[in-house]
Design a protein around this nucleic acid. Sequence first.
DNA 1: AAAATAGTGTCTTTTAGACACTATGGA
DNA 2: TCCATAGTGTCTAAAAGACACTATTTT
Lengths: 227, 227
Amino acid sequence: MWPRYAVAAMDSDEYRDSRGKTLADYPRPSVAVDTAVLTLDDEHGLLVLEVRRASGRGWALPGTFLHPGETLADAVDRSLRLKANVGGLHPRQLHVFDDPRRDDRGWVLSVAHLDVVQPERLQYRFPEATRLMPVSAPGRLIYDHADIVARAVEHLRARYLDKPDPYRLLGEQFTIRELRLAHEHVAGRPLQRDWFRRTMEPQLVPTGTMVSRGRGRPAELFRRHED
Amino acid sequence: MWPRYAVAAMDSDEYRDSRGKTLADYPRPSVAVDTAVLTLDDEHGLLVLEVRRASGRGWALPGTFLHPGETLADAVDRSLRLKANVGGLHPRQLHVFDDPRRDDRGWVLSVAHLDVVQPERLQYRFPEATRLMPVSAPGRLIYDHADIVARAVEHLRARYLDKPDPYRLLGEQFTIRELRLAHEHVAGRPLQRDWFRRTMEPQLVPTGTMVSRGRGRPAELFRRHED
DNA sequence: AAAATAGTGTCTTTTAGACACTATGGA
DNA sequence: TCCATAGTGTCTAAAAGACACTATTTT
């Protein structure tokens, strides 16, 4: 047990050692961001964007070190532009990986992020420095990046349970069928057609436009509510 | 758009500037942890532990800077022992606050945490350097600490919806009534007595022991499943 | 006896799931 | 015409919520 005066003296915002340094002057970790960028493919389902390591060997999620004056979202955005030529996204934090020995380059904390993009935004990505892999078989990834992909999918699943495409995998307008197929890819299992319509339709705005895609009766296009 | 060779050259794990420094040698942020320690009081409901600032003015959540070689959980544990004389907890990450200007002492990232403790563990806390406040009225807190409390409660509520006291606010054994009162304090609203028993009892192990607490028919003590 | 609490039976409402039917286009 | 898909009615099963009753204790 500590005497009470010790508490105030050792509070990090006032404590100074014999050389007059504050705790903030002591060694600091590098802070990195690593992002699982997910997108949707009609054939292969949910895909994750991977980038070739600088050494040329192996694949990783796009990431970078946090620069002074930058927010984490800024750093995620910068890393995606730089490593994969993808821009304009809305990253969300997932987890901080903090094992002091996780990175052989030194003391590096990594803030894992999730980002979701429409497939068209990935069409100009660097063709040889990047690849898209199914989230169910992301290949061999460095460090804890496979773990990040798993957390990203888990997060996405929870969000897609009862709301129509909250992360906007689809464009502005879509049929209920397209919406259901997207949700099935996220959920990793088939969803019931009638139940799906009845839960989602009240949360959408009908456009009145009918579209015929392939065989079968034309379907109505819906869009999201403004908010 | 960047030529492909630029990608490899600027990858953070190989890039060197004209002075041969890697990106990891560039300025790094201080990393702090701040923790909303929640506990339960029969009268006042959910309480949050606050500590007096070193300057003596104002209150804050307990926190500290991350030290080299330490995990975030280690830092949380250290800060609670040092500032409040509370130990042996199991913190969970909530969010990284990353506004470069959020702390007037410089560039400081803060990883917000939640921790839940049984009230007895707080009985030896520093009496004048700490206080316990209701989460609904935490008083004036510095920086974004009120936001951390709100996130902590929100997280707790989600976890307490359908599982019996997952964060162990209560001890080893308890009656269904005690469990329900704890859940009502977390939920911030009364819960239905019969529905609550029917959802929780199958998830508990009966001990066979009956206890009489105050008036009314004695109730059976239950305990959690081993896992 | 009165009041308070434990524990349970049962009814109603809501929701999820299942099945089936009609409607409307393309091949 | 056949087939695929859209859209809807309706039944069933499961879950949530509401109400009431009996049981057992303290005051």
